[in-house]
Amino acid sequence: MKVRIDPELCQGQGRCFSIAPSIFDFDDLGNGVVIGDGTLDDDTMKLAQLAQSNCPEHAIFIEE
Protein backbone atom coordinates (compact mmCIF):
# COMPACT_ATOMS: atom_id res chain seq x y z
CA MET A 1 0.00 0.00 0.00
CA LYS A 2 1.12 3.50 -0.78
CA VAL A 3 0.12 6.95 0.41
CA ARG A 4 -0.13 9.98 -1.84
CA ILE A 5 -1.29 13.58 -1.60
CA ASP A 6 -3.41 15.04 -4.39
CA PRO A 7 -1.69 18.39 -5.06
CA GLU A 8 -4.89 19.79 -6.56
CA LEU A 9 -6.77 19.19 -3.31
CA CYS A 10 -3.98 20.01 -0.82
CA GLN A 11 -4.25 23.58 0.47
CA GLY A 12 -1.41 23.48 2.98
CA GLN A 13 -3.54 22.93 6.09
CA GLY A 14 -0.41 21.39 7.59
CA ARG A 15 -1.98 18.53 9.52
CA CYS A 16 -0.22 15.60 7.79
CA PHE A 17 3.39 16.66 8.34
CA SER A 18 2.61 17.62 11.95
CA ILE A 19 1.00 14.26 12.75
CA ALA A 20 3.34 12.05 10.69
CA PRO A 21 6.64 13.83 10.02
CA SER A 22 8.25 10.50 9.10
CA ILE A 23 5.85 10.14 6.15
CA PHE A 24 5.08 13.72 5.09
CA ASP A 25 7.12 16.86 4.59
CA PHE A 26 6.23 20.32 3.26
CA ASP A 27 7.35 22.28 0.23
CA ASP A 28 8.35 25.95 -0.07
CA LEU A 29 4.70 27.03 -0.12
CA GLY A 30 3.82 24.93 2.93
CA ASN A 31 1.88 22.29 1.00
CA GLY A 32 2.20 18.67 2.06
CA VAL A 33 4.43 16.25 0.15
CA VAL A 34 5.05 12.53 0.65
CA ILE A 35 8.61 11.59 1.59
CA GLY A 36 10.06 8.99 -0.80
CA ASP A 37 7.66 6.79 -2.78
CA GLY A 38 5.04 6.58 -0.03
CA THR A 39 5.23 2.83 0.56
CA LEU A 40 3.67 1.97 3.92
CA ASP A 41 4.49 -0.84 6.34
CA ASP A 42 2.37 -1.96 9.29
CA ASP A 43 3.72 0.78 11.55
CA THR A 44 3.53 3.66 9.14
CA MET A 45 0.10 2.58 7.87
CA LYS A 46 -1.57 3.54 11.17
CA LEU A 47 0.15 6.91 11.18
CA ALA A 48 -0.77 7.56 7.56
CA GLN A 49 -4.40 6.67 8.30
CA LEU A 50 -4.39 9.06 11.25
CA ALA A 51 -3.07 11.84 9.03
CA GLN A 52 -5.67 10.98 6.42
CA SER A 53 -8.49 11.19 8.95
CA ASN A 54 -7.28 14.64 10.02
CA CYS A 55 -6.93 16.20 6.58
CA PRO A 56 -9.70 18.83 6.26
CA GLU A 57 -9.33 18.87 2.47
CA HIS A 58 -9.58 15.07 2.03
CA ALA A 59 -6.38 15.30 -0.02
CA ILE A 60 -4.64 12.13 1.27
CA PHE A 61 -5.16 8.78 -0.48
CA ILE A 62 -4.01 5.34 0.62
CA GLU A 63 -4.21 2.78 -2.17
CA GLU A 64 -2.70 -0.36 -3.71
Partner: peptide, 10 residues
Protein backbone atom coordinates in the same frame (compact mmCIF):
# COMPACT_ATOMS: atom_id res chain seq x y z
CA UNK B 1 2.05 32.44 -4.03
CA UNK B 2 3.87 35.64 -3.15
CA UNK B 3 3.11 35.43 0.54
CA UNK B 4 2.99 31.67 1.18
CA UNK B 5 6.79 31.16 1.32
CA UNK B 6 7.04 33.72 4.12
CA UNK B 7 4.41 31.79 6.15
CA UNK B 8 5.50 28.24 5.35
CA UNK B 9 6.55 26.04 8.30
CA UNK B 10 10.28 26.55 7.72
Amino acid sequence: KLILPAFAPG
